[in-house]
Design a protein around this nucleic acid. Sequence first.
DNA 1: CTAGGGTTAG
Length: 920
Amino acid sequence: MPQRSESSWSTMLSGYVRAEMYVKAVELFYEMWVQGIEPNGFMLASLLTACNRSGKLVSQGTQVHGLVVKYGLLSDVFVSSALLHFYATYGFMFDARKCFEEMPERNVVSWTSLMVGYSTNGDPEEVLEIYQRMRREGVRCNQNSFSVVISSCGLLEDELLGRQVLSHVVVTGLDYNVSVANALISMFGCFGNVEDAYFIFKVMEERDTISWNSIISAYSHNQYCEDSLKCFRWMRHGNVKPDSTTLSSLVSACSNVDNLKWGMGIHDIVIKFGLDSVICVCNTLLTMYSESGRLEDAVRLFRDIPEKDLISWNSMMASFGQNGEYQNALGLLADLHGTNEISNHVTFASALAACSCPEALIEGKTIHGLIFRGGRIEHLLLGNALITMYAKCGVMRYAKQVFQTMPQHDVVSWNALIGGHMENEEPQKALQDFKWMREDGMCANYITIVNVLGSFSTSEDLRNNGMPIHAYIEMTGFESDSYVRNSLLTMYAKCGDLNSSNFIFEQLDTKNIVSWNAMVAANAHHGCGEAALKFFAKMHQSGLEFDHFSFSGGLAACANLGLLEEGQQLHNIIIKKGFESDLHVANAAMDMYGKCGEMNEVLRILPTPSNRPRLSWNILISGFSRHGYYNKARDTFHHMLQVGAQPNHVTFVALLSACNHGGLVEEGLAHFYSMVKEFGVPPAIEHCVCIVDLLGRSGRLIEAEIFVKEMPVPANDHVWRSLLSASRTHNNLELSRKAANHLIELDPSDDSAYVLLSNVCAINGRWEDVDDIRRKMKSNKIKKKPGCSWVKVNNKVSTFGMGDQSHPQTLQIYGKLTDLRKMIKEVGYVPDMSFALHDTDEEDKEHNLWNHSEKLALAFGLLDTPEGSTLRIFKNLRVCGDCHSVYKFVSKAVQRRIVLRDPYRFHHFSNGKCSCCDYW
DNA sequence: CTAGGGTTAG
């Protein structure tokens, strides 16, 4: 073979590279090398390109680096550019960077290679750093460098820089370049700005498949399912053939219940184009079926994927987890172990997410162990997932421990911790961690704010923490976020400041389902049932569909108003729409039936004891308590302990109030002490109110007063009101005065202090004092909350005030009252004048007593309802003692069952007796 | 330059 010239070796070498015969190129080089021919810069650059493009010749490339150094060719710009490109391609960014920094001169290609390297290695921050440096050094970008910079802005959601880059693009005229425009479409998609994405797409002069894919995925990522489908139709109309990327995006756009019908159509198209074996498409389809609540279809799809990759496994595991099937998720983890696939951090994150419920705590701990032994414990994402898992299992101690041992935190770590405090009802800790987070220099995002606000639930929380944070929100500009505005609204509502929540609600530019639901729930839970129902109806009129939250709120409103029929109708709708199995809805339904006096209905829909959540137990106990079945309340409490459910502070409020209504003083006290000692539930103000009421009602006023002085939390208005009411019942003028003074001090606008005190004075015949109190009320502009009663007859609610004559059947009503009075006087009724609170003669007193609203409602109810039916009457204030006695007599005289609900409890009257045994 | 799985959420 004749001796070849240097140039012929060069030509051969570059020929092999052009022909994509990379291994041949390397072999040729060795042949030349053993013949002792010294390579020139061009050869080494070609060789590096071969190593680069083959994707496999890593060690060969690094050996070439040695030759470059040996022959002093680092100063050759072609060689050093090729070397840089080689290192960047294989992800050796340290070497790539070194190469770049040491280059004698750089062209735009060198800059681009470096940026592409960082981009493909998942470091968009570095890409933007380099871009800024390019700007400083006056280097002009080409289409490739612009594309990678634009895509990095999108990934980092850096909208400010993104718009700057756009202006640079326009200046250079590269906005007409297809690749650059494609990148811009995706970037705006990442910002959630589909309008600008579409604008760029619309003005493009020529589009390729990637352009279509970019706009479709921009719509898909931002949940604009219909728009992505519209684009797809337009694309098909122009005879552009979709590829697997197009269809993947479309499938993920349809990944929810509402869009499943379209998704299934796309599934058919996938099959038509023969793309149903593309793994990426299979995986998106799997997720789509799972997210639409069709887990079985997802499982079938998973089984049928011939060559599952790790993402298939991870997706399936996540699907099981999201559908609450943690055993299946963990089973999959075991199956994965038997394959060739190697699990990654996403695998474990999904497994942890599946274990994020109290029942799966042990499994969660096991995964924690696996992560530790697998050496993944320092992974940020897994640390975050662990915090979440422990927080959702209710073990904040472990969540905090994980947090403290993590080598680094991001905003998600803090949010998971604060969110955990929120869910576990620890508002002070949520606030404390929020403060520490800011001291630590970590920027809050909207989720942080939503979590912190969500942890507040009392008027104290609102005053001390909620309002200062509201100020912080206004200052930092978070109030422009619609999630934040909704959670502000919810906070004010939950803490009982309905005026403020109303104000925020009215100011909302768009009222979404969450805003409406918050208004319904807050009004229902704060005793404004009618307002709640109005919101409920208006929400529907505005075209929104009810969800779990709306139905729970609607039921709570019916419960508040005691509207059994409406509640039942709503419950029927709920069943029809398939919401009855939702835990919150089921609990709200139970609560509604309980508060409407239908304990049998409560028992009918109650979950079986073994999987009965604590909330259901609490509703059951408080239901029994409200109806005076204190034995059943106590039995339920013991049953709850037997099946291993943990009582919480609400359980004890219900239990103590059962003892209270049953007059079980010793038992109530015993529960109060065991609550702290045995169950570790710290006594809160609600428990103390129960105890004060318990002691006071039974006449142990001295002990009640001592308890108030010594109890672990400061007394509030409820405590003093209860003590005042007890001293009225047991006629203790001195204590009444004390309690009334405290009450007026705490809440000067409250009418009950004046009213109750004047009652005690009236009983004792101290009419001057009564007048004095009346004058004070007048001068302080305080009005007695008017008592009213209502009764529903023939689907129409009739409301009566004291001495009300506004009803169209007034004549008959008063006639009926006279009859009743005669009838029961014959069988022993004697009016109890101590409930007549004006200083008049005895006849007037009796006349006033017979003007009480509950008596008017009773007379009307008896007029217009069939004989033998149960009469249901409601009162906004505690029932008067004389009326209670009248109801008993009437129930026997006319042989009717009467159910009276006041704000505290139910009275079931039947055959001359009341279920409260005259103790209320 | 486009596409599939994961942690925080009213």
